Simulated assay, not measured.
Amino acid sequence: MMRVAVAGASGYAGAEAVRLLLGHPEVEIGALTAAGNAGARYGDLMPHLAPVAERVLDATEAQVLADHDAVILALPHGHSAAIAEQLGDDVAVIDCGADFRLRDEGDWTTFYDTPFAGSWPYGMPELVGAGGVKAREALRGARRIAVPGCYPTAVSLALAPGLASGVIEGGDITVVAASGTSGAGKSLKPHLLGSEVMGAMSPYGVGGVHRHTPEIEQNLSAASGSTVRVSFTPTLAPMPRGILATCSARVANDADAQSVRAAWEQAYAEEACVHLLPEGQWPRTSDVLGSNLVQVQVTLDERVGRVIAIAAIDNLTKGTAGAALQCLNLAMGLPETTGLPLVGTAP
């Protein structure tokens, strides 16, 4: 059994990590920590996590986290680096924040307001690169892993096969993605009140300013082998969980509908957590709820010469905590899907 701590356990992502760890056959849950909620009974904050309801949250301090085989950091952006540098290599650290995702310091300083902390192996095992090698090879046995963002997970897995195979071009990509309100975290914000969200959809981060933009471009450039730029528009949907990403790219001159679909089939044929749907069936956020599954569909709009790729994920599971568990398994030498739910809930 490996002993795993969760820092930031009182937030949505941290609580989702605890939920998944409770179902992991090789895990003993160690310390559960928080900042402002330190000292609180966990069940008062997360009553759905009954097996650990009587736990009292510790403060998020390095000495509390050090005595573990692994630590999942579910902290606000900019807070992980200070904790991570105090933990030795004997502790595997899986960071759900953005601190170590970006490789380019200029990208970081453009979109974030804290010092650049460097980059760690990027925790999207299924991401295919330009040479056909997937990102999981860098994750096996790694002691530090950066979990991807939720939007980049959906967008990258929707588009990467087309760029890696050359059936789509990287110079004209647009993405419109809808997210549930849990993607904004648990802090109280007027625009996230039920009375503001119910019955409404609204865009935000418009005009290339959303923080996930450089991460999406980093992933797609790795798949393409050349620089890719993306016009990304996120929207807020009246649902608590889920992301639906609708992605469009110009088809390569010699690609037809058959070769387009073949690229996605080849990329994901052996992937347990990415499901290319049968032709004519489209992803729905409700079908991946609570699961570590990505549903993907792709088609060619021959009239305008564009490929449309759509992906659905649960932003808290495959988009955050499920990816953390997937990476933890790879880091610790366990089968990749151990403890991960691969089916959604319905209705």
Rank of each mutant, 00 (worst) to 15 (best):
T153M: 08
E169M: 07
G149Q: 06
V155K: 02
G205C: 02
G194N: 15
A184Y: 10
V147D: 01
I173N: 02
G180P: 03
G166M: 08
L188Q: 14
P148F: 11
C150V: 12
A142C: 13
L188N: 12
P190H: 14
V167D: 05
L157T: 07
T174Y: 09
G208N: 12
A178G: 14
S182T: 11
V175G: 02
A177M: 04
G149T: 04
R143W: 11
V176H: 05
I173L: 08
G183N: 15
A160T: 04
S187V: 13
D172N: 15
R140V: 14
S156Q: 14
G205A: 03
G171I: 07
V197A: 11
S165K: 05
S179R: 01
L163V: 09
A177R: 00
Y151H: 13
A158S: 10
G208A: 09
A142F: 11
E196I: 02
C150W: 02
A142D: 09
G170D: 08
G208S: 07
A164Q: 04
P190N: 12
S156K: 05
T153Y: 06
L157K: 05
V175P: 01
G171A: 05
L188E: 15
G162E: 11
G171K: 05
D172F: 01
G199V: 13
L157Q: 06
R140D: 07
R140A: 14
G162P: 06
T181Q: 06
G194R: 15
H191E: 12
V147L: 13
T181L: 10
L163M: 09
G166K: 03
K186S: 15
T153H: 08
G170R: 03
R140S: 15
T153S: 11
H191I: 11
S182N: 10
A200L: 11
L157I: 14
V197E: 07
E169Q: 14
A146M: 11
G180V: 05
M198L: 14
G185S: 13
S182R: 06
P161R: 04
V197G: 01
M201K: 04
H191Q: 06
G183F: 07
V175R: 00
R144P: 15
A200P: 00
P152F: 02
S179L: 15
P152G: 10
A177K: 00
L193Q: 12
I145K: 07
I168K: 04
G194P: 12
S202P: 00
P203I: 05
S156E: 14
I145E: 12
L139G: 07
P161L: 04
D172W: 03
G171E: 10
R140M: 08
P148G: 10
L159Q: 03
G170A: 07
G205M: 02
G166A: 13
S187R: 12
P161T: 06
G166F: 08
E169L: 14
G208F: 07
Y204S: 04
T153V: 15
M201P: 00
A158N: 11
T153K: 10
G166E: 12
V147W: 01
L157V: 10
R140P: 00
P148C: 14
P161I: 03
V167P: 08
T181G: 05
A142N: 10
A184L: 14
L193T: 11
G180W: 01
A154D: 07
A178M: 00
A200Y: 07
A184T: 05
S165F: 00
E196D: 08
Y204A: 02
M201H: 02
Y151L: 13
G166Q: 13
G170N: 10
R144K: 13
S195I: 12
R143K: 15
